[in-house]
């Protein structure tokens, strides 16, 4: 009973916040609705028993990706009139995407009802008593090891690529040498002198 209530709550919230993400006028509000959608999707994951995926969804998407989104969007100076002007221009492309997605969904439901693919068996590949972190870990690090490491390599290339593309060397910038600063002792910098009256101090 409670799981049913929770499912409908999360599902309705995902749909509502997803809709509001694209309908909100203010881009910051859009990002916040998107975060709510992520959060409720994580709730749905917990309901199907994939608590590890749910936690990762929150940590990675809500905790890191969306923070950076918000970071960028908050600092943008956005002209709302200009944003709305492009609406008609992008409309055909948007409609095309909607038709594509709808067709895919119809095909997926059709395949499900036809029973060609045994999805029900794939939905629960592990015995219930193994925590799904362990189940996932054993699969990723044994059977899919090369794919997993390949994915890591692709990410590394993307990381280095982003740094190479955005890094520019600027001349004439003074930087601090932390080690030199820490090694500096009072004896290097302070000299006690007793100047007599009327005579200066040589520096």
């Amino acid at each position: 009973m409670i799981t049913v209530i929770a499912f409908y709550l999360f599902a309705a919230m995902v749909i509502a916040s997803g809709t509001l993400t694209i309908l909100a006028r203010n881009p910051v509000h859009s990002v916040l609705w998107l975060i709510l959608a992520f959060f409720n999707a994580a709730g749905l994951m917990i309901l199907v028993g994939a608590e590890f995926i749910a936690m990762l969804l929150v940590i990675v998407y809500v905790g890191a990706v969306a923070v950076l989104f918000l970071f960028v969007v908050m600092m943008l100076d956005i002209d709302f009139a200009e944003l709305r002007a492009g609406f008609a221009q992008y409309l055909p492309f948007g409609v095309l995407l909607v038709i594509l997605l709808l067709a895919e969904m119809v095909f997926a439901v059709g395949a499900w009802t036809a029973g060609g693919v045994d999805i029900a068996a794939k939905a629960a590949p592990t015995p219930a008593e193994v925590p799904n972190i362990e189940a996932l870990g054993t699969l990723i690090y044994t059977r899919y090891l090369f794919i997993f490491e390949g994915a890591g390599l692709v990410l590394l290339v993307a990381l280095i690529g982003a740094i190479v593309l955005t890094h520019r060397v600027r001349g004439g910038v003074k930087t601090q040498n932390i080690a030199a600063q820490n090694q500096r002792r009072p004896e290097d910098a302070i000299r006690n002198v007793k100047p007599t009256i009327g005579k200066g101090v040589e520096l």
């Binding site: 959060f39 936690m55 990762l56 929150v58 940590i59 809500v62 905790g63 890191a64 925590p131 972190i133």
Partner: peptide, 15 residues
């Protein structure tokens, strides 16, 4: 059994 991840998740929302 994901207690520690739960804490990480919650603290990342705190920001």
């Amino acid at each position: 059994n994901v207690g520690l991840l739960y804490i990480l998740a919650a603290s990342s929302i705190g920001v």
